[in-house]
Design a binder for these strands. Structure first.
Length: 876
RNA sequence: GCCGAUGUGGCGAAAUGGCAGACGCAACGGACUUAAAAUCCGUUGGGCUUAACGGCCCGUGCCGGUUCGAGUCCGGCCAUCGGUACCA
């Protein structure tokens, strides 16, 4: 291909315009107070999810979203907006560190090289970023403020009364460290003794390290945590008004996993202690025939009887050898052992055995459950396996049993009553031979306090009783866990924390940035100590104090980069107040679904903390979110080295040009949809652009491109005006709707309509070039310039033109073709005057010979007239 | 399991409840050319029928419903893809 003649000289014009845009600072957005800032202009902040600059360079997936936002950015500029469209680098991260371990090359160098490569690639595609706002999370000028934000989080707490983050100074309790939004806790991590490091869950496969296949065990280690759970309620509620895809909102809600229920306290037999469980079904309390604690629950040691001590210890050892993944993967079959201890069911007074099992997680609820096998699938499976009592306490049915009072009727009666009302298959089986758990709502039975009550009311009643007796209370639980915020890595932001006498303390803001020490050896130390421990001088903060050795996770930098873009040079504040007030929030945020939960949740969390502390004026960062779909290989499979189906954007650009690449990415299909790449498709779009080129240009004898002699200053004819204005209308509404594929299709219709005309009105082509400019900016700019050489216009830059407005009057036709239907089937199409009244259309239809033919011998029952569309004659 | 998305020609896809398949690809035919490429013009959902112009029937994953009219709305299935997984 590259040896073939180019359909138009994109290889010359694209670099030319890219250089010119840079020189003219065309895409630089002025901040309030800057020279050239126009307060009358509305603002528009359109943001891409910034990339991790990997060694592999860009793939075709990146530019899909970037092209979409670029079209919007260029369009909004035409529309008179002050557009903020920035780009930067999420540059801390593991690959650079691992590369450093292998080669000894400092991650900073690797990162710099990768950033340079990415930037070259992005520039070659012609994106209209304001490069003067470029940021990298690894710049000290940037991570200084990442550390500063951490300090704000560290120095605040969540006041449950105001439901807001507040400075720690407003906390009046004894132990501020127990309520800080950043705190230290012992949490279990994946520890690989052989590699001497902690591994992420994704790095552990079947209980072995992904690298080397060494055994991995879970072991508690001291970690920094962020108290995101305090914001769970607000993270759900404040999601509601955002203009995000419903699916993403749902994903976040499910991740936060709110469930309402109650805590119930079970007394332990022969002990002053009690076990508190969380349940969403307190109405099934009478059916709790056993209890299960998580193996890690500290109560286990105190409950276990001497006879069971060895069994329990063995089981715990077995469990701790399993990784999280293994523990859940192998969850096909329930396991567990009896502790020997018993508790008392507070409702029934029955004595119930206490077990431990790994299907109960220490990290959710209270790390203990009441086992209600008749009404919970997992409990049912467990009870079956270990032959525990199964007691039915909810019967199918919805209406309360007539005449049944509260807790007075014998349970047997109400059970019989509800069966009579709505028989269910399994209730025919005698008690103890229940075939499966009934987990739906129904009517309480065998539960004296709440018999005959429907589930909702039974829950309410039993909670009231528990609260009255001091045995429990209504609570809400979340799946969301606090955010494990520390990593034992080198290439990340050091914590602005020092330790002295076993206590942590924050650095002051003027000690920032805290720069990581220069290291030659980035390898894990083998002891579990982070690599920073090697830098002994750096670690010593003072005579008595030493620095925190962990670093922050990669998420930290991406939690607030959209704020820094508003004011990237500011040396005295993470973002200037005026800049933040002017630019925030992000009007359009485009990126992949892979960040639907973590990044977007973490960023919202930080934003809310900063908002509560009055550093920001907005409560949410991203007003509108759009996810682009994945681009698959030509074979319909996910692009990967393994399949050899990876497409390199630069290869495509070398053959067809950046404009064709951009347009093809948008023409493939709807932005949000997953779709396969097709080189033939690129070819087609490239042909379209070449046709646009030849609409204005022709070759002279010498083979040079010159302005076409078909161009004239004449006015477009009626047919042409219709196409022009239909195109303005469709392209405009389609861009607003992010429906770029159909916008391009309409421009193709335009070009087809003008391709073989003898004379081409310059006016029509000017309009086309402006409409095309957001999609194919190099081509449109070049042609505009060429056109201006012979047909000057003021202002003479395409980017200074107003966006065209369509005029309805050019779209209306005198005649319109409508369909005549008989009984819903189209029988003939006829041309009718646009002004024809419904009555006229009706009689016209009935008089039509074709219609006559089909209604012959039938009685016309009804005639439906849709003016401009069709007439449907209903007859039988 | 659960949650979500998607099912329309040979392919990527269009269609405020109102003429299904716009636009593009591929394929085929034609023009130009010594020839090819490029370019331009045309045909192109399937079946039946006609010498031809035409005409008829079927068709948006499957089954049903609402409606004068359903790719679109409702109910029930099936398939593919993605996410998630003992969350009490």
């Amino acid at each position: 291909m590259s040896d073939r003649r180019k359909p138009y000289p994109f290889d010359v014009i694209e670099p030319k315009w890219q250089t010119r845009w840079d020189e003219r600072r065309l895409f630089h957005a002025a901040n309030p107070g800057d020279p050239g800032f126009d307060p009358a202009q509305p603002k528009y902040y359109v943001l891409d999810m910034f990339p991790y600059p990997s060694g592999a360079g860009l793939h075709v997936g990146h530019p899909e979203g970037y092209t979409a936002t670029d079209i919007i950015a260029r369009y909004k500029r035409f529309r008179g907006f002050n557009v903020l469209h920035p780009m930067g680098w999420d540059a801390f991260g593991l690959p650079a560190e691992q590369y450093a371990i292998r080669t000894g090359q400092h991650p900073e160098i690797t990162t710099r090289e990768n950033v340079a490569r990415f930037k070259t690639q992005l520039k070659r595609i012609g994106f209209s970023y304001d490069w003067e706002r470029e940021i990298a999370t690894t710049d000290p000028g940037y991570y200084r403020w990442t550390q500063w934000i951490f300090l704000q989080i560290y120095n605040s707490w969540f006041n449950p009364e105001t439901q807001r983050a507040e400075p720690i100074s407003t906390y009046t309790g004894d132990d501020p460290d127990s309520v800080r939004l950043a705190y230290v806790a012992e949490v279990p991590v994946n520890w690989c003794p052989e590699l001497g490091t902690v591994l992420a869950n994704e790095e552990v496969i079947d209980g072995k390290s992904e690298v080397g296949g060494f055994p991995v065990v879970r072991r508690p280690m001291r970690q920094w945590m962020l108290r995101i759970t305090a914001f769970a309620e607000r993270l759900i509620d404040e999601l509601e008004p955002l203009d995000w895809p419903e699916g993403i909102k749902l994903l976040q809600r499910n991740w936060i996993g709110k469930s309402a229920g109650s805590e119930v306290r079970f007394a332990i037999e022969g002990s002053a202690e009690a076990i508190t469980v969380f349940t969403t079904r307190p109405d099934t309390l009478y059916g709790a025939t056993y209890m299960v604690l998580a193996p890690e629950n500290p109560l286990v040691a105190r409950l276990t009887t001497n006879e069971q001590r060895k069994t329990v210890a063995d089981y715990k050892a077995e469990i701790s050898a399993k990784s999280d993944l293994e523990r859940t993967d192998l969850a096909k079959d329930k396991t567990g052992v009896f502790t020997g201890g018993h508790a008392i069911n507070p409702a029934s007074g029955e004595r119930v055995p206490i077990w431990i099992a790994d299907y109960v997680l220490m990290s959710y609820g209270t790390g203990a459950i009441m086992g209600v096998p008749a009404h919970d699938e997992r409990d049912f499976e467990f009870a079956q396996k270990f032959a525990l009592t199964i007691k039915q306490v909810v019967a199918r049915g919805s209406a309360p049993v007539p005449g049944a009072g509260e807790g007075v009727s014998p349970s047997r009666t109400s059970l019989a009553g509800s069966i009579a009302e709505k028989p269910a298959p399994e209730t025919g089986a005698p008690p103890g031979e229940i075939q499966s758990a009934f987990i739906g709502d129904g009517v309480a039975v065998n539960s004296p306090l709440i018999d005959a009550l429907p589930t909702a009311e039974a829950k309410h009643r039993i909670i009231a009783w528990l609260e009255e007796k001091g045995l429990g209370r209504r609570t809400i639980n979340y799946k969301l866990r606090d955010w494990l915020f520390s990593r034992q890595r080198y290439w990340g932001e050091p914590f602005p924390i020092v330790w002295e006498g076993g206590k942590h303390r924050a650095l002051s803001a003027d000690e920032l940035p805290l720069v990581p020490p220069a290291l030659d050896d980035f390898k894990p130390t083998g002891t579990g100590e982070p690599p920073l421990s090697r830098a002994t001088d750096w670690v010593r903060h003072s005579e008595k104090a030493t620095r925190e050795l962990n670093t922050m996770p990669q998420w930290a930098g991406s939690c607030w980069y959209y704020l820094r873009f508003c004011d990237p040079e500011n040396a005295s504040r993470f973002v200037g107040e005026e800049a933040e007030r002017y630019w925030m929030s992000v009007d359009l945020y485009v990126g992949g679904t892979e960040h639907a939960v973590l990044h977007l949740l973490y960023a919202r969390f930080w934003h809310k903390v900063l908002f509560d502390l009055a550093y920001l004026t907005t409560n949410e960062p991203f007003q509108r979110l759009v996810n682009q779909g994945m681009i698959l290989g030509e074979d319909g499979r996910k692009m990967s080295k393994r399949w050899g189906n990876v497409i390199d954007p630069l290869d495509v650009i070398a053959d067809y040009g950046a404009d064709a690449f951009r347009c093809y990415e948008m023409f493939m299909g709807p932005l949000e949809q997953m779709k396969p790449w097709s080189m033939n498709g690129v070819e087609g779009v490239s042909r379209f652009l070449a046709r646009v080129w030849r609409l204005l240009m022709e070759e002279n004898q010498a083979g040079e491109w010159i302005l076409s002699s078909a161009l004239t200053e004449t006015a477009p004819d009626k047919g042409q005006l219709r196409v022009i204005h239909a195109t303005i209308k469709k392209v405009t509404t389609d861009i607003e709707a992010l429906s770029f594929n159909t916008a391009i299709a309409q421009m193709m219709i335009f070009v087809n309509a003008f391709t073989n005309t003898e004379t081409r009105p310059v006016e029509a082509l000017r309009t086309l070039l402006v409409l095309l400019n957001p999609f194919a900016p190099h081509l449109a700019s070049e042609l505009w310039e060429s056109l201006g050489a012979k047909f000057p216009i003021s202002p003479n830059e395409i980017t200074d033109q107003p966006w065209p407005e369509h005029r309805e009057e050019f779209l209306v036709e005198h005649e319109v073709e409508i369909a005549l239907q008989v009984n819903g089937k189209v029988r003939v199409r006829v041309s009718v005057p646009i002004a024809a009244t419904p009555e006229e259309l009706e009689s016209l239809a009935q008089a039509n010979p074709r219609v006559q033919e089909f209604i012959a011998g039938l009685t016309v029952r009804k005639v439906v007239v849709i003016p401009g569309k069709l007439v449907n004659v209903v007859a039988n």
